[in-house]
Design a protein around this nucleic acid. Structure first.
Lengths: 143, 143
DNA sequence: ATCCTTTATTTGACTGAGTCCATAAATTGA
DNA sequence: TCAATTTATGGACTCAGTCAAATAAAGGAT
């Protein structure tokens, strides 16, 4: 099921140039916004509408081929690493986003101390901090 | 330092009717949006501008008197429970948000498997799921 | 290969949440 | 009490994303 064409068919979705290009764009530039992906797609196929990009990102995320993350204060980001319970580390200064594996292995992340009767299906973890580059920069400016 | 007036003074902030009312509104209705808080404030003091509400929420959050959370697909929410490393459980269906204590006690939440050279200052955890009410509703409609 | 139905894409208007900026008002501290 | 500073107001504006109607492309049956 790694072939995107198969994947789309398998989910009853038509195979379109836009969807395939969006998929490739997400793989090429992980953690980028719809806007960036749209540009990337345009450099590959001649043109896409913004709406088509949003549609593609939306349905692909829904079907589980890509993942959408929506960090505070940033437009949504998309990545193709999926189904592996990993988390993100985001720089407060420059927004740089990197993957981190789940600290606790499999999926005990899903465990909350008290679930308040909720049925929990995902634990989203975002680590906020400062990336090495921005750390260096601020050290320099403080000197 | 529990008196908000003292708190504001202590941080070199002027004590204004708007700020105090915003503070009270956040305490009264935890996990509400700027919009809801603005209405709440208006019911107390006669009028506030949207901007004043955003300003107050912003500076109060910055000084650590309130906390801002920004869940995916929702406007920012504010709460007055602060400095206790708790997390949130959000219903995907109705958006209901409840507090959960950190599963691991103190603050080991701050530990990522690999920090990639970042200096981490916060681990934000959001548990996504379905609240009891929405679970019941969907069980009924499936019957 | 062609036609027909379904599914996607385009275009352009529109919304919600939040910010910017210049002016007016309130707060502070001398 | 008065100037200096800090906030608040009002209104325009931006950004990210959605809606909806019309058009075009895919997929299936013939």
């Amino acid at each position: 099921m790694k072939d995107p064409v198969q994947f789309l068919r398998h989910h009853g979705l038509s195979v379109t140039a836009q969807r395939l290009a969006v998929l490739r764009a997400v793989s090429r530039r992980s953690h980028s916004t719809a806007e960036v992906i749209a540009e990337e797609v345009r450099s590959e196929i001649n043109a896409v509408s913004r709406q088509a990009v949003y549609n593609a990102l939306g349905t692909l995320a829904e079907k589980g081929l890509i993942r959408r993350i929506q960090p505070a204060g940033s437009p949504a980001l998309y990545e193709d690493r999926v189904n592996d319970n990993h988390h993100h580390l985001i720089c407060r200064t420059c927004g740089k986003t990197v993957d981190v594996d789940c600290a606790k292995g499999r999926a005990p992340c899903l465990t909350a101390a008290d679930n308040a009767g909720f049925e929990i299906d995902e634990a989203e973890v975002i680590y906020w901090g400062t990336c090495p580059k921005c750390l260096a920069k601020s050290a320099r400016s403080r000197a």
